[in-house]
């Protein structure tokens, strides 16, 4: 297992050293988009629009970019490998296709963690928001990552079957942004409860409280975030396995 992590990391660095501009481009792109978004919004609407909600908005956007990068990286990596005709060779390995995908997701997580730092700095500088970072925040960040992994596996399963998922990702991006902007923690009980059934919402709510307001969320919310993440992870793994089985029956694992 460690070997697989090691070799995947090595492969990533190798590819990076040959094509460094790709990564640089994606980081700069994200930084510029967020910076423009905030400075533009501030310029147009003045600070009054955001008011005390500014921090909540910033946290929503950061969590959204974290979660969405992870799940879209998983799905688009599978699409890429399908295009390159490598899915079959990856299936014929010791960890198998699911194993390889999981290890790569782990590395994506690391990479996104590093990438998000400049993005966060850009957002903070241009928006003027202030964020806390208590250690407890690592917990909902972890559940956010697990839940996104589950969703990524679902999309990855779709990518196995349909090969191209670019358009779907584009659509989902906005659906997710909407979902992440809704402050379920501010709703009355039955509605917030229903909202927390949606993917990742309890993790995002906990992070908004922790990072944005410096409040400690109730344990019930943290536990809920954990359960929510595990359920979506399990659904993701199940879905991916089914998709793999399906393409093996159709004989289309290697086709594009």
């Amino acid at each position: 297992m460690l070997r697989v992590v090691h070799i995947e990391f090595w492969r990533f660095l190798r590819a990076l050293s040959r094509y460094p501009l790709e990564l640089l481009g994606s980081v700069l792109g994200a930084v510029v988009v967020f910076a423009l978004f905030f400075s533009g919004a501030r310029y147009l609407a003045g600070p009054a629009l955001f008011g005390e909600r500014l921090e909540a908005l910033v946290v929503s956007l950061i969590t959204w970019s974290l979660a969405f990068s992870l799940l879209s990286q998983i799905a688009s990596n599978i699409s890429e490998e399908a295009l390159a005709g490598l899915l079959e060779q990856l299936a014929l390995t010791r960890p198998g296709l699911l194993g390889v995908v999981l290890v790569r997701a782990l590395l994506s997580l690391l990479q996104i963690g590093l990438l998000v730092i400049p993005i966060v700095l850009a957002i903070l500088l241009t928006s003027g928001a202030r964020l806390d970072f208590p250690p407890l925040a690592l917990l909902p960040l972890g559940t956010l990552a697990l839940g996104s992994l589950g969703l990524g596996l679902m999309l990855g399963g779709l990518a196995l079957v349909y090969k191209r998922v670019g358009q779907l990702l584009g659509l989902l991006q906005f659906a997710f942004l909407g979902l992440f902007l809704v402050r379920f923690e501010a709703f009355a009980w039955p509605w917030s409860g229903l909202g927390y059934l949606l993917p990742l919402t309890p993790s995002v709510a906990a992070l908004r409280l922790l990072l944005g307001r410096g409040e400690t969320p109730g344990w019930d919310l943290l536990v809920l975030a954990g359960i929510n993440a595990l359920v979506y992870l399990a659904l993701g793994v199940g879905f991916f396995r089914r998709a793999l089985r399906r393409v093996r029956r159709q004989g289309t694992l290697g086709t594009y």
């Binding site: 697989v4 070799i7 492969r11 094509y19 005709g85 060779q89 390995t93 010791r94 390889v100 290697g254």
Partner: peptide, 29 residues
């Protein structure tokens, strides 16, 4: 060696491909 697919990473060198797939198939790097 499968028909009609590339079987290899085009961005990696020949040796790097062998190191990568060898490790995924149970060898040490």
């Amino acid at each position: 060696v499968l028909e009609g697919s590339r079987n290899l990473y085009w961005r990696l060198s020949a040796l790097e491909n062998l190191i990568y797939f060898g490790t995924l198939r149970g060898l040490s790097p």
